[in-house]
Computed example of a mutant assay.
Amino acid sequence: MSKLMRFDDQLNLGQAMAQEHRKSGARPSRAVLRHFPAGTTIFDVESPLSRVLFIENGWTISSKTMLNGTRIVTDFFLHGDVLSSASTSMSHETVHAVSDVNCYEFQGHMAGSGGDGGSQLPLIMTIELMKRHARIAERLASIGRRDAFGRTGHLLLELAIRAGNSARPGLDGFECPLKQSEIGDALGLSTVHVNRVLKEMRLGGLLSFRNGIVEFLNRRKLIEMVDFDPSYLADGSETAGFQDIHQS
């Protein structure tokens, strides 16, 4: 397992490849920096099947819309994550930007060969699919076995790890552009129910979610209450901060 997890570092290959591309003056088609304003649809079921995006910064959501108009949020993608139009098309999902998003786009390299970085894309995509499978499995466990409080707390703790450290000094939390309706669509809860849970957490001195900022007032206690174990997310480099909090 440890040998496999070391490959996780290659999820940053997109940025490294793009930087090398700019230095070497390689063909523009190899790696292109794309910008998607908030609200933009990035992929849908009719997207071309040869596009792979490495998210440099920003937040995106993948979702499915049922015949009755109900939307289900299937996953969140943040910096360092990988998006594939082929995967989106096969799963009949739509991916849209919930904040401004910058990505490195690679086209036509899924069957790459030789020494160029494009030949690493099949490996990177395999790892990304494994990581996404782990996230979705945990989400299913939340919906099937956790109450609304547990689901919401678990998701926000997961997003805190994936979002990384806040740029705001002294803040134990992260900037979160998600609406309460989007959180609810990911957890099978109504917006009213999510609002009620967030109010309960705030009054209980656990966390505050206001003006796009999630602030943990007592992260350790929340971790214990929802039985959060981040081992499904990635290797120790991403969860080291959690381990420090959990063990202190």
Rank of each mutant, 00 (worst) to 15 (best):
S2K: 11
K3R: 15
G14V: 10
Q15S: 12
E20T: 10
E20Q: 12
R27M: 07
S29G: 02
T41F: 04
F43Y: 07
S47W: 01
L49C: 04
L49V: 03
W59M: 13
T60Y: 10
S63V: 09
F76G: 03
F76S: 05
G80S: 10
D81A: 09
D81Y: 07
A86W: 00
S91W: 05
V95H: 01
N102T: 08
Y104H: 12
H109T: 08
G112Q: 10
G115D: 15
G118E: 14
Q120V: 14
M130T: 14
R132E: 14
R135Y: 11
E138K: 15
G153N: 07
H154L: 14
L157D: 11
A160Q: 11
S166L: 12
D172S: 08
D172R: 07
C176Q: 05
C176R: 04
P177K: 03
E182G: 00
E182Q: 07
I183D: 04
A186K: 09
H193G: 01
V197E: 07
L198N: 07
K199C: 09
E200Q: 09
F209L: 10
N211R: 12
G212I: 15
V214H: 08
K221H: 11
L222V: 02
I223S: 04
F228E: 02
L233S: 04
A234R: 03
D235C: 08
Q243K: 01
D244Q: 00
Q247P: 00
